[in-house]
Structures are given as C-alpha cells and as structure tokens.
Amino acid sequence: MLRRYVDLYDDFKDCDEIEVIGFGFNGDDGHINGLFRSLIEDKDKVVHIFQHNSGTMKKNKRQCTEYYQRKLRLSSSKDLKIYSIDDNRFVNGEIWYKSILN
C-alpha cells in the first residue's frame, strides 16, 4: 500500500495543478491528507477543491477555505482554491473543469 501512496504522490508531483472532487479530507484519511499537505507546502502545488454546494459550501468562501486549511493542517491557504459544485457538476453555470481555466 505504501508503494501506491508513493506512486500517487509522484504522479501528483508531476501535475501543474491538482483538482479534487468528492473527497472530504476526513480525519481517518491521514495518509492522503498528509500527501496533499506535502504537495501544497513542499511542492507549491495549487489544489482546486470542488465541494458539493449542499454541505460545507453553505458557508461563505473564506469560511470554506479556513475549513480545508484546518482539515489539511496547512500553515497557509494561499494554494487552496475552493469551488461550489452542484448536482450537475457545474460551477457558476459552467461545467467544473472550465471553471478553473478562467
């Protein structure tokens, strides 16, 4: 299993930016959360998190960013980009992947 985490980390490390859809960064996901923390803080990767608009995103954007910063135990939220996504995978009226191109 450790080899899979290392392979995943290496694949993410080669990406320009990382998009996360449907992952909650829960407490029992410590290994994955640590992987993302390392990518953000050590490799300066920008991580786009798409959160369904019925949950955490009912809060304002600043609160959501702080929420994920705490969950990932990040020293800064500068490389976190949070989006509210609906049931049709749209962000502000356009399909999710187009929202990061703007």
Rank of each mutant, 00 (worst) to 15 (best):
K58P: 07
K58G: 09
K59V: 06
W96L: 15
C64I: 07
D28Y: 15
R4Y: 12
K98W: 07
I49P: 05
N88S: 14
D79L: 11
I82E: 09
D29E: 15
G55Y: 11
N53I: 13
L35S: 04
K58H: 13
N102Y: 01
H31K: 06
R62G: 03
R70K: 15
I85C: 07
E94S: 11
W96M: 14
Q51R: 11
I95F: 15
F50A: 02
K59Q: 04
H48F: 00
K58C: 04
V91K: 03
L8Q: 13
H52M: 07
L35V: 00
V91W: 01
E19D: 14
L8R: 12
S99C: 13
K45R: 01
F25E: 08
Y67T: 06
G55K: 08
N102Q: 08
H48R: 08
E66C: 06
D86P: 00
G30F: 14
Y67F: 15
E66D: 11
R37T: 02
K78M: 12
L8V: 11
Q63E: 01
G93R: 10
D42G: 06
D16A: 11
S76I: 08
I100H: 06
F23S: 11
K81S: 04
R37A: 00
F36G: 02
I21H: 02
R4G: 10
D28K: 15
Q69D: 07
I40K: 03
V46N: 00
C15E: 15
Y67H: 12
F50Q: 06
K98P: 02
V20N: 03
N92M: 12
L101F: 09
I100Q: 09
I40W: 02
G24T: 04
I40M: 01
G93E: 08
N92D: 13
N26L: 09
I82T: 00
L101C: 01
K71R: 15
Q69P: 07
E66G: 02
D7E: 15
D29W: 01
Y9K: 12
D7I: 10
S38F: 08
E66M: 11
D28V: 14
F50M: 05
D16K: 10
L35R: 02
S76H: 14
R37L: 06
D79I: 03
R3Q: 09
D10E: 13
I21T: 02
I32W: 08
K59G: 01
I40A: 08
N60D: 05
D14F: 05
V91I: 12
V47C: 03
L2T: 08
V47R: 07
E19W: 13
L2N: 13
L80D: 02
G27R: 13
G34E: 08
H52G: 03
Q69R: 09
D16C: 11
R70E: 15
I49Q: 05
V46L: 05
K98T: 01
E17F: 01
S76D: 15
G93D: 04
I18L: 07
Y9H: 09
N102I: 00
F25H: 05
F36C: 09
H52A: 04
V91G: 10
K98D: 10
K61A: 10
Y5T: 04
M1L: 13
F90Q: 04
L8W: 00
D16N: 13
Y97W: 11
G27C: 14
G24L: 02
V6Y: 14
F12H: 10
Y68Q: 05
D28A: 15
Y83D: 05
L2D: 07
I82F: 06
G30P: 12
F23R: 04
K13H: 07
S99Q: 10
I82M: 05
Y9A: 00
F50W: 01
L101G: 03
E66W: 04
